[in-house]
């Protein structure tokens, strides 16, 4: 069974978000998502300083098997991207919630986080997916 940390928020499209102590929001894809994709070979990230809106495509993750768009759950300015993924995209598989993060946003509206799924609701959404 894939991991769904309680402290994170989720989209049904398999992105996670974490509110950091400095007020930024880190975004990545879930353990379930990386498991479905299989070996990740390439990640396309948003540009630094780009302004993105919740629900926008903010990147692409490609595995040997498939390509998948990444959506940002929050609006704001991109303040960091995970450069490590350029050369070691497999971090998305080995550590999806930490070293395999995608980008960090300075949010313009933190209430967007509250509209995301909690761990239980996300787990339920995944189970529905499987049937």
């Amino acid at each position: 069974m894939s991991q769904v940390p309680k402290e994170l928020k989720y989209l049904a499209s398999h992105e996670w978000a974490r509110l950091e102590e400095d007020g930024t929001v880190t975004v990545g894809i879930t353990d379930h998502a990386q498991d479905m994709l299989g070996d990740v070979v390439f990640v396309e990230l948003p540009d630094l300083d780009a302004e993105i809106s919740a629900g926008d495509e903010a990147g692409v993750v490609e595995s040997v098997k498939a390509a998948s768009d990444i959506y940002t759950p929050v609006s704001g300015v991109v303040v960091a991207i995970n450069e490590e993924l350029q050369d070691t995209p497999e971090l998305v598989n080995s550590d999806p919630y930490h070293d395999g993060w995608f980008f960090r946003v300075k949010p313009s509206d933190t209430t967007e986080l509250e509209q995301m799924l909690d761990a239980d609701a996300y787990t339920e959404a995944c189970e529905e997916d499987d049937h």
């Binding site: 299989g38 070996d39 040997v64 598989n93």
Partner: peptide, 8 residues
């Protein structure tokens, strides 16, 4: 079987 852990 599609893979046994890692296709790569």
């Amino acid at each position: 079987p599609i893979h046994y852990g890692s296709q790569m």
